[in-house]
Design a protein around this nucleic acid. Sequence first.
DNA 1: GTCTATAGATTGATAGAC
DNA 2: GTCTATCAATCTATAGAC
Lengths: 206, 206
Amino acid sequence: MSDKTTRERIVDAADRLFYRQGYAHTSFTDIAGVVQISRGNFYHHFKTKDEILEAVIAFRLAKTQAMLERWEAEGKNPEERIRHFIHILVANWDDIKLYGCPVGTLSTELAKLNHASQEEAKRVFTLFRTWLCRQFADLGHEAEADELALHLLARSQGVAMMANAFHDRAFVAQEVKQMCDWVASYAQPAGGSVKRSGAAKRKKTR
Amino acid sequence: MSDKTTRERIVDAADRLFYRQGYAHTSFTDIAGVVQISRGNFYHHFKTKDEILEAVIAFRLAKTQAMLERWEAEGKNPEERIRHFIHILVANWDDIKLYGCPVGTLSTELAKLNHASQEEAKRVFTLFRTWLCRQFADLGHEAEADELALHLLARSQGVAMMANAFHDRAFVAQEVKQMCDWVASYAQPAGGSVKRSGAAKRKKTR
DNA sequence: GTCTATAGATTGATAGAC
DNA sequence: GTCTATCAATCTATAGAC
């Protein structure tokens, strides 16, 4: 931690503060307070506040990419890999409860600000989407892979939103289980007697 | 429009601006520009910016309540009423694409600001939740009604988030159809041969 | 009820000493 | 590379004339 460059420490602090307070509401004073440098010193590392945001987004993109590659290596099969994604909701419960999903909340905030970096921020979503898409394709559902990826992305975003609004951990756990079951229904050999549609139409009785 | 009181015009303008720009990023100057009054004149109607937010939230609660009562009266049965809810995503597509869901985005912003009115803002969610809960109960699913309401609320929030991020109208239409089909599966006489999963399944021991 | 003028604090950003 | 001092703009909020 102490061997990080000042620039890295600024990005680290800004990353956390943008997540917890929002971008617009986080000031140089806030970041300086965490990093323990003077406000003037900022401008040796970044010319504008927007540049800090760009660095934070690049940082998040890199972190996300690394995480997806880790899941890719660790998961024994696509189903297990997708479950890794779904379980973010459980693993990050404490943060999501308080601040929502970092990807979704930054995306919506920048959209409202009509910020120049909004498209770049949405690329974090695209990383997940593309990765999930490939997993579903590997499960043998090439034709609908992207559609399934978007569907799962939407559901996890919705659950994160409800978690933030209602702080109901049992609901999150239940939705996580449902999503895992839904993925499992796509991991079965296709073309059999098991039918599903969209969300998860039908599942065999247990 | 022109026969509205100045106070009402302020709340109207603030409502729209808070939605499109976010609360923190909307200034008195912005609102004054829309309402066409001087900044000083604000304080004759509201003591603080927070008071404007309170009025906006109260306004949204009243609007939502009225809308739910309209759906209640217009819908011939619970299934049709719930479809009214789902179709907000289609009816408000243009706004959602640009600014997301007004309920969800205000809720997450106030959570990040740790704003005093955050709980009040979340009550809009609760209005929908309670209303949906009663519809599912009327469909004969009392035991799991609240769970189903939360599930549907989460899904619509997730779809709104994806709509805002990817601007994919076809995806929204498809998800809307899936949600309607899902509701329909609960409108069938229970205990028959139609099986559903998703939120549907019997609640397990908890 | 609406205005102008302005206070007082904070914002993002700059200049220059060390 | 870090600091202090400071600028100009903007913010919420107040005071007082009309």
